[in-house]
């Protein structure tokens, strides 16, 4: 016998799904902003010529990159409380996802910065720029353009990773679906619906990344 689809459960629980949708978006936006800023800070600290700054940051960066994100989230939520620091699920997810994104963003920034010829920094220094002025005015704008495609890829990946927050009881999309399923016993409808919703969230970001690449690729004022 064919499966009887009951799509009406979606309408019935629209508010729960809507909330999940909003939380997924909020978590994604916050993680992307925090992860990028933190990633830049990691990169700059790793370039500081002082062993007590450079090496611990590098080590942290490496650990964050090597650990599965799920493990980071579970550790923050279930293990950290033993030290007395108890984080609500959303905060733990925000911190964990931001840290892991930062580690990858930092790698992207590093390779972006290293791809800029040394002479670019030197000419700025020779004209009287300080090192940080040269970094922010000359190196990073050029590096940013080169690493943007890579960065957009990381963002898209991390939006998808917000689904992992469901295991630490964050009311995001997947978790909301699970809650609804536990009362309606309609997993097929709900999992299909959230798959579509994830696509609706991700696809504009993908389109935007193509647009931005195209726009930055062509940069001609006059010939």
């Amino acid at each position: 016998m064919a499966y009887q689809w009951h799509w009406d459960v979606l309408w019935q629980f629209r508010f729960a799904l809507w909330k999940g949708f909003l939380i997924t978006i909020a978590l994604s936006v916050l993680v992307i902003i925090a992860g990028t800023i933190l990633g830049l800070i990691f990169t700059l600290l790793r370039r500081v010529n002082h062993p007590l700054i450079k090496w611990p940051v590098s080590a942290l960066n490496e650990i964050l990159r090597d650990l599965p994100i799920l493990v980071i989230l579970i550790w923050l939520y279930y293990v950290l409380p033993i030290t007395g620091i108890i984080l609500p699920g959303f905060l733990a997810a925000f911190i964990g996802l931001s840290l892991s994104l930062a580690a990858f963003v930092s790698e992207t920034f590093r390779s972006g910065i290293e791809s800029i010829p040394k002479g670019q920094m030197e000419s700025a220094i020779a004209l009287g720029y300080s090192k940080s002025q040269a970094m922010f005015k000359i190196i990073l704008p050029q590096a940013f353009k080169r690493m943007l495609p890579n960065l957009m890829g990381l963002y898209i990946h991390q939006i998808k990773n917000t689904a992992l927050a469901s295991v630490i009881a964050v009311d995001e999309l997947l978790h909301s679906a699970n809650v609804v399923i536990s009362t309606t016993y309609r997993p097929l409808e709900l999992y299909t619906a959230i798959a579509v919703i994830y696509l609706i969230i991700i696809m504009p970001v993908v389109a935007f990344s193509y647009y931005i690449e195209k726009k930055l690729g062509i940069k001609v004022k006059t010939l």
């Binding site: 220094i125 009287g128 720029y129 005015k137 050029q142 353009k145």
Partner: peptide, 30 residues
Amino acid sequence: RDKLGVVFQDFNLWPHKTVLENIMEPLLLI
């Protein structure tokens, strides 16, 4: 360094800025 000017073998112009901006920016900033 403020009193010195260095010109390099491989120019080291900043490719993300126009010719005029290349000249203007150090004047504005420094």
